[in-house]
Write a protein that binds this DNA or RNA. Structure first.
Lengths: 131, 131
DNA sequence: GGTCTTATCAACCAATTGGTTGATTAGGAG
DNA sequence: CTCCTAATCAACCAATTGGTTGATAAGACC
């Protein structure tokens, strides 16, 4: 039940069984029983997994008599993809720039290392944990 | 400590503080103290977060006197991206096909709904949980 | 040598998680 | 109405998680 959406999605997919169910659902909607079939766990456990996926917005459930077909909401993937790509690109960009600097550098001079040496932010008390 | 790499990565990024640290590290390597500065938690807590990120292969730590600079390993992102893209594409492909079928359909006939109606897999006992 | 800084290890704690079993709801079939 | 099927709710349990404090290790500084 993490408040923010991104945490919920990552957390939901951190479980191999749940990832497996998502994979299964790309093939088409399925009932809880159908989803449970491959796994050696109780139906209730599967039900719980589905709730996690639902809370994360990865699946929705509709109604068909006493069955509750589960449907994959692929759009949520975009949330993750965006987050990942953003920082991946940023990190790669950084290396590219660093490589350029090193390449352009005449041998023997000190390059001001990329380790962010400057500020040390004294940071107030903190130990008492205000929140 | 999930055994499989993908679970470890997803799990590591399921925490907003840890995602934040990853974001910070795209700018450049940092020491534990530098990483801890923005957060209102103990240094030990940050140390633990870093261990989770390290176990997931998202960061590595080197040595610089008594400092342990943390370095982002952006390649691991690919693991996730691959998994996500695979199933996202699969899901989108499925809808595309479904749309085609519906579009090609003359009005008024029963389209065999996309809800995977066929097999019901009797599945043996199961309730006793063998593993 | 002592002491300050940087960081980890160790024990503990409350909350969450993934699983269980048992009871219950909801709807179709006899 | 009674029974069967599909699924959820509820209570419980062990393991994991994110946090804490206290002690310790490893170097630099004087």
């Amino acid at each position: 039940m993490p408040a923010d959406a991104l945490s919920a999605v990552f957390s939901a997919l951190a479980d191999p069984t749940r990832r497996d169910m998502v994979a299964r659902l790309t093939v088409g909607d399925a009932t809880v029983n159908e989803l449970a079939a491959p796994y050696d766990v109780s139906l209730q456990a599967v039900s719980k997994h589905l709730r996690v996926l639902e809370d994360a917005g990865l699946v929705t459930r509709s109604r068909d008599a006493q069955r509750r077909p589960v449907h994959l909401e692929a759009e949520v993937f975009d949330l993750m993809t965006k987050w990942i790509e953003r920082y991946r690109r940023q990190a790669e960009e950084r290396y590219r720039r660093l490589d350029d600097v090193l390449a352009a550098m005449p041998d023997g001079i000190e390059p001001t290392p990329p380790r962010t040496p400057e500020k040390q932010t004294p940071k107030p008390t903190r130990r008492g944990a205000t929140s």
